[in-house]
Amino acid sequence: VGAKQLERADLEPLIEQLQAQLITKNVAADIGSQICESVCTSLLGTSQQGFGTMRATVRSALEKTLTRILTPSHRVDMLAAAAAAKAEGRPYVICFVGVNGVGKSTSLSKVAYYLKSNGFTPMLCACDTFRAGAVEQLRVHANALELPLFEKGYGRDASGIAQDGVRYAKQMGHDVVLIDTAGRMQDNEPLMRALSKLVTLNNPDLVLFVGEALVGNEAVDQVRGFNKSLSEYSASRDPRLIDGIMLTKFDTISDKVGAALSLVYTTGKPIVFVGVGQTYTDIRNLNVDHCVRSLLKS
């Protein structure tokens, strides 16, 4: 048997299998099919020895594609950026956004701990003025981490509080401001408008989208919805979009890591951290190899 040119008909059944596999791993359905389609196209016409290794060929091509998608084009180096802002004599501002209950406040306190243990003095800014207990929750974290907290209670306009917070941090010489926002569904227009206002007004250095690894197709909708609202409702000509992703509850999903793939594929932004538990030290960088292996493991 000589070299055989791969044809669509040969690939289709294998591709279909892999697509189903990706979906069981929590990859959003249409993203799974788009990725498989592109793998298929890239393999068309290439030569292939014998029949037995076809599966391996497709698999390795998919593996390469997944690795490429998950490896971001640029990294968010929070410490370097914060140090640069400090040299300019202004606080480095990070804004946490996301839907309800994904772990914004908890992630914020983890990042605060991370920054603190690297020699910065972060200040927490309580801009969730809606949900019951939100300010108290942040105060508990601030006390535990021995960090300053800026809050003005409930019911107030969040963007104003954020502005005052940043100004206050500058006066007091705090290096980093971590803005906590209220959870909101991506298609809730009034709330998304308010968020866009907060982001436009304060122009934070980093807009961190917090998403949970538990969601499937929803992940794509969420991040698209946030990006769309941030650009649509923004008054400025060059609207701020999401700069990075923090993926939480990574410890709850065993090998169904598809949300990571969906989010990175949709936004093209890096996963800055993953959250792997409920304590301050449960924060990691994303291990791309491990992620790809989990996705391909059946």
């Binding site: 019951a132 207990g133 939100a134 300010v135 108290e136 929750q137 942040l138 105060r139």
Partner: peptide, 16 residues
């Protein structure tokens, strides 16, 4: 008894 602000949250909700 674990999550920060859990009792405050319930308290505020219940009061409302």
């Amino acid at each position: 008894t674990f999550r920060a602000g859990a009792f405050d949250q319930l308290k505020q909700n219940a009061t409302k």
